[in-house]
């Protein structure tokens, strides 16, 4: 009968396996616990960075930081008038495929540009405010392209669009896409407020 022999071999196999299993299990579970712990610690430290940035402390977080931290840093930079420093960070978000975070980051940049434009308008510098609004509109539009149901961006794009309206046939052919024609370097003529609200 093969049955007892088989049972015997199974028993022997289990006898060999059991001590190894008993040894491997605590080690593997310990490693898993360590990994989860490190991940939780990272999330917590990212949250602390976000809180610090939102409280107004500058932290140089670097391009490899988690997406929400990058968004917080972009918000900080935009709020302190350092818009040119935000570009590599937004590009990093785009590369990482974090559409939601990139959308939120562009929204914050556009808001900063709009606030600057409002500041210029109240000081009477109309010619400088125009390009700012146009830039803000481009960023709102890109934010909406990444996240079509971003209602705050829709609202603010509406505000920006009423400051400078588009005119279909004689001004632009393709929306807020920045397209430098070979001969025409300036896609917008600064200092020409077109259309009232």
């Amino acid at each position: 009968m093969p049955c007892p022999a088989m049972r015997e071999s199974v028993r022997r196999f289990w006898g060999r396996l059991r001590p190894r299993l008993l040894l491997a299990l605590p080690v593997l579970l310990g490693l898993a616990s360590l990994g989860f712990g490190v991940s939780a610690w990272r999330a917590d430290s990212a949250n602390r960075s976000i809180a610090a940035l939102e409280a107004g402390t500058d932290l140089d977080v670097g391009i490899g930081a988690p997406a929400p931290v990058l968004v917080a840093r972009i918000g900080y930079l935009a709020g302190h008038g350092r818009l040119e420093e935000t570009e590599p960070l937004v590009a990093a978000l785009d590369r990482a495929g974090a559409a939601d975070a990139a959308s939120r980051a562009r929204y914050r940049i556009a808001n900063a540009q709009m606030r600057e434009a409002f500041g210029l308008l109240t000081r009477g510098a109309l010619d400088k405010a125009g390009p700012q609004v146009t830039l803000a509109r481009q960023d709102y539009r890109r934010a909406l392209r990444d996240r079509p149901d971003f209602w705050d961006a829709k609202f603010n794009l509406d505000v920006a669009s009423r400051l400078i309206r588009d005119f279909p046939d004689f001004d632009r052919a393709s929306g807020d896409e920045m397209r430098a024609e070979p001969k025409q370097i300036w896609t917008d003529i600064p200092g020409q407020p077109r259309g009232g609200p």
Binding site: L25, P26, L29, G30, A32, S33, L34, G35, F36, G37, S39, A40, W41, A43, D44, A46, N47, I50, E54, P66, P68, V71, A72, G75, G79, R104, Y107, R108, N111, M114, R115, F118, L121, T122, D152, F155, N156, V159
Partner: peptide
């Protein structure tokens, strides 16, 4: 005039709790 705009909003936080819980469960099992 900046009040015509919607505010920037808060950056969403990461949630460390699920990882923390998983770490504790794994530690207990270990």
């Amino acid at each position: 005039p900046a009040e015509y705009l919607r505010p920037d909003g808060r950056v969403s936080r990461l949630d460390p709790l699920p990882d923390m819980r998983a770490a504790l469960v794994a530690l207990g099992a270990a």
